[in-house]
Structures are given as structure tokens and as C-alpha cells.
Design a protein around this nucleic acid. Structure first.
Lengths: 192, 192
DNA sequence: AAGAATATATATCAAGATGATATTTTTGAA
DNA sequence: TTCAAAAATATCATCTTGATATATATTCTT
């Protein structure tokens, strides 16, 4: 079946902001979109190659001054058109596989203490993630303040960050509530 | 690289409740875990085959009375042990690819009206999903009331449903807030 | 001073996962 | 009578993941 490689649009979106290397794309995606979009070298390099082959990007090689050479990619006009075509299309539904929820769902087969531990760890992770979002937000605002190329994206980056913040808060609350239910089930006479 | 096929644990989890066919597994997963776990025939049938090969499940064939024969699978004792081993392990992080967020993130390249449309549609989807959760919850409670095999899972299924409810509510709120921001940006003098 | 870890860079590839598609027969709705 | 849906069995091309490999410089720790 002819499915569509979506990494190409992530890459086109980044290249539309400025030319960058495969390594740059991974680095920037790690700190900007990783909370809602998974991307890794395994997909970036082959996709860069095919974007060049399809005429959506061009590549130049910069000498590394002792470091490995940098292969820098820039979007083309037909790449911009292809990005615009895809952006206008209805977004697809995400495919979810949340292992913690599967284990909760099968919780009747688990030691309740173990399940509580998992939920406690998940809550900690959510709180840590929220702290990271605060840093990301501060960093984003400082980039804008110093006139970064990303300034025109700030509003939208903050919008996507808000999603992540709401999501993490809502999962942390769900963890607390679920832990309380499990503890209550273990000690039905305990004071609540 | 040695990754682990997680479909096998979904299947073992279902078979632990009762014996079922590949078609049953798909059907039951569609109405119980689909909101947080994606599973389809493409993975179910090959995995059933390998579970039998590994001794974690056994298969019997039931004549279909004119319908195609049913291939019914049942978990084995070593299958239960394998499931217990996996359930006790720390859950992995989900891999997320939320296309709507990617488009929001790249929103500087989009027609604001089109982005608003997408967010409005997402909000509608969330509200529809919440209504489905209400039905799922009612159905679950009625299954328990009539003494279904699923009764001992109810608490855990409700727990996972709560996650989905919180998630959908939080996304719907995020959509409303984002739409308001986009509209305010279009009409900066408009009354809020 | 030496060693380890990290950063800067280029990637690959085996295996997991997706989802469109195929086939057959019965049942129910139009 | 015809068509769609359900009940069943699956397959497979393609997308996606993430561990792994290689090389050099820089930074940090011992």
C-alpha cells in the first residue's frame, strides 16, 4: 500500500526555516518537537537522500575543519510547494501504543504494589516533563528576544507546548487518582 | 536489533481472560483498548502463529457451520508466566507522532483559517470520543452486572478509560484555547 | 596527565508496526 | 433481488524504530 513517509514533511518544515544538516535536524527536533513527534537518524538520513532525489531539497558539503564534513540541505521551491500541499491536508489520527495503560488494563493480573510503583514513576516523569517544558518555554522566549529565525514560529511552538503541558498535567492527575483507588482497594478500612 | 514484539503480550492478556480467535481479538481490542493501543490483523495473525510455535498458546479449529472455520487460541501455563514476566517490567515510553501538533508547530506556514478548521474538527472529534467513552463505560458496567468474565477487569478498564476521558477533555480545551488565540491574532481589535 | 564521556558528524539495517487488500460464505437491509 | 455488512481467514509492501557502527574533537573527571 502507498503510505506516505511523514518524516519528509518534518524535514521540509525545518529546512523551510533554515538550511541544516541531518545532525542539526535530529538535534533541533529533539528539543522542539520530541514531546509529540518521534524522529531519529534511522529515518532522517534516508529521507534526506530521497528529498534530494525528488528535487525537494539540495545538498552542499561544508568542510569540517578537522571535524567530519557537514552535509547541509536546503529546501527548494518545489519542496516548499510539497510542504504546503501536505500542510493543507486533514491531519491523520495518531497511532497510540501506551504500554503503561495496557498494563493498567491488565491490572487484575498484576501485583497491586507493582502497579502503584509504575504509576508513581509515571507521575514523577510527568512532573519532570513539566519542568522541562518550563525550560523550553523560557528558552523559546529568549530566542525570540534575541531575534532568532524561529521568532515567527514562536506562537505556534508555544501552542504545541501548551498541548504537552496540559497532557502531562492531566496524566499526573490521573496517576494520583488511580494510585488512590488502588490504595483504597488494598486498605478498604483506611481513612481516606 | 532485539526489540520485543508487544502484540504478543496484548494477545496473551486477552487469552488469559478467555480463549478466542484472531478475529475475536481484533473485535474485542477495537472496543476495549483501541483508545490507547493500536492493533490490527497484520500483526495479530502472524503473532498468534508465533505464540503457538513458542508454546505460549495452543490452537483448536472449530467448524464454522457454513461460516469459515474458527481458529480458537488458548493460553498455556508458560504463556501465563511469560505474560507475568512482561507485566512486571517497567513500561516503555510511547512513541508519539501527532500530526495535528506538527501542523500547529509549522503553523506560520499555514492559512490561519485552515488551521482553525483543523482545530475545530479535532475538538469535535474529542467530544465525540467522550460520548463513546460514556457508552463504553455504560456497556462495561452492564457486562459486570450480568456477571461477564470481564468483571474482574472492570476496575482496571475503568481506570484506563479515565485516562482517555481526561486526555480527550484536555485536548478539547487546548483546541478551544488555541482557536481563540488564532482568532484574536486575526482580529486584534475584536472584542474578546 | 590520562581516561572517560560528550559533542560533532556521517550513516545502516533487522525487526516491529501499519493498514490496504484479498478471499469466502452467511445474514440482514434496501 | 441486490447490495452491504458481518464473520472469518489471512498477506504483504512500506513505514518506523532504535540499536549499532565509525571517526575526530572537546570537555570533564580522576
Amino acid at each position: 500500500m502507498a503510505k506516505e513517509n511523514r518524516t519528509k514533511f518534518v524535514i521540509l518544515g525545518f529546512l523551510d526555516a533554515m538550511p541544516m544538516s541531518g545532525y542539526d535536524i535530529k538535534k533541533i527536533s529533539a528539543r522542539s518537537i520530541a514531546h509529540f513527534w518521534n524522529e531519529d537518524y534511522g529515518h532522517i538520513y534516508p529521507t534526506l537522500r530521497s528529498l534530494v532525489a525528488e528535487g525537494f531539497a539540495v545538498k552542499t558539503v561544508e568542510a569540517g575543519d578537522g571535524k567530519p564534513d557537514r552535509h547541509v540541505y536546503a529546501i527548494t521551491e518545489s519542496g516548499r510547494k510539497e510542504l504546503a500541499r501536505w500542510l493543507a491536508m486533514d491531519p491523520g489520527r495518531p497511532n497510540l501504543r501506551i504500554e503503561l495503560l495496557l498494563k493498567v488494563f491488565l491490572g487484575a493480573r498484576m501485583d497491586p504494589k507493582r502497579l502503584i510503583e509504575m504509576l508513581e514513576e509515571e507521575e514523577r516523569q510527568c512532573l519532570a516533563t513539566l519542568a522541562e517544558y518550563d525550560e523550553t518555554e523560557a528558552h523559546l522566549k529568549s530566542e525570540v528576544a534575541r531575534g532568532s529565525e524561529w521568532a515567527r514560529y514562536e506562537k505556534f511552538q508555544l501552542m504545541s507546548l501548551r498541548y504537552g503541558q496540559r497532557y502531562s498535567r492531566s496524566v499526573a492527575e490521573w496517576c494520583r487518582e488511580s494510585i488512590q483507588e488502588l490504595r483504597a482497594a488494598e486498605n478498604p478500612d483506611a481513612k481516606r
